Simulated assay, not measured.
Amino acid sequence: VHAYIMSYLKKEMPSVFRKETKKKQLIARLGEIFRNIQLEHHISPGDFPECEKMQEQLRVHDFTKFPALKPKMMEELDHMLTFDVAKLMPLVRQEEMEMPEQMVHGGAFDGSSNGPFIEGIIDGLFEAGEDDEWVVTKDKPKYDEIFYNLSPTDGKINGVKAKNWMITTKLPNSVLGKIWKLSDVDKDGMLDDEEFALASHLIEVKLDGHGLPSELPGYLVPPSKRRQVGSAD
Rank of each mutant, 00 (worst) to 15 (best):
V229Q: 01
I43F: 06
A232I: 12
V60D: 11
A108R: 11
P222Y: 06
G120A: 10
F66S: 01
K138F: 09
K65V: 07
H105D: 01
N158C: 12
T82P: 04
M190G: 04
R35T: 15
V60G: 03
F63M: 07
D139E: 14
I37E: 09
R93V: 11
R226Q: 00
E195D: 07
I37C: 12
D123E: 15
R35K: 15
K170L: 10
Y148D: 02
H61Q: 14
H41A: 07
D132T: 05
T21K: 15
L216C: 09
H210I: 01
D131H: 08
D184G: 05
D110G: 00
L198S: 02
D47P: 06
E215Y: 08
S151L: 13
L81W: 08
E215D: 12
A108H: 05
P90G: 04
F147M: 03
Q25M: 06
L216I: 09
K65I: 07
A3C: 10
M74E: 15
G106T: 04
L212A: 04
S231D: 07
P71I: 15
S200P: 01
S231V: 14
D110A: 05
K178A: 11
V92N: 11
E75A: 15
R226Y: 00
D131N: 07
K206S: 12
K187A: 11
D132P: 01
M97L: 04
N158Q: 09
G124V: 02
G107P: 00
W134L: 05
N114M: 08
F196Y: 02
A3T: 11
A86F: 04
T82G: 02
D78M: 13
E52W: 03
F126V: 04
V1Q: 07
Q55E: 05
L171M: 08
S7R: 11
S224A: 14
T153I: 14
I43H: 09
H201V: 02
W180R: 15
R35F: 14
E96R: 13
T137R: 03
E52D: 13
L69K: 08
I118N: 12
N164R: 15
K178W: 05
V135G: 00
K23A: 03
E195S: 03
D188K: 11
A68M: 09
A3H: 13
I33F: 00
M74Y: 12
L58Y: 04
G230V: 05
F63N: 02
F66K: 02
N149A: 10
F117C: 08
I157V: 13
L9I: 10
E12N: 13
I43L: 15
E145K: 14
S200R: 03
A28R: 14
Y219H: 11
R29C: 12
K22L: 05
E32C: 00
H105K: 03
S113E: 09
A68K: 15
T82I: 11
M166W: 08
K170P: 03
D131K: 14
Q94P: 00
P152C: 03
K187Q: 11
F147Y: 10
K70T: 10
D193M: 07
T64N: 10
Y8H: 12
E204Q: 08
K24T: 02
H79D: 11
M166P: 06
Y8V: 06
E130M: 13
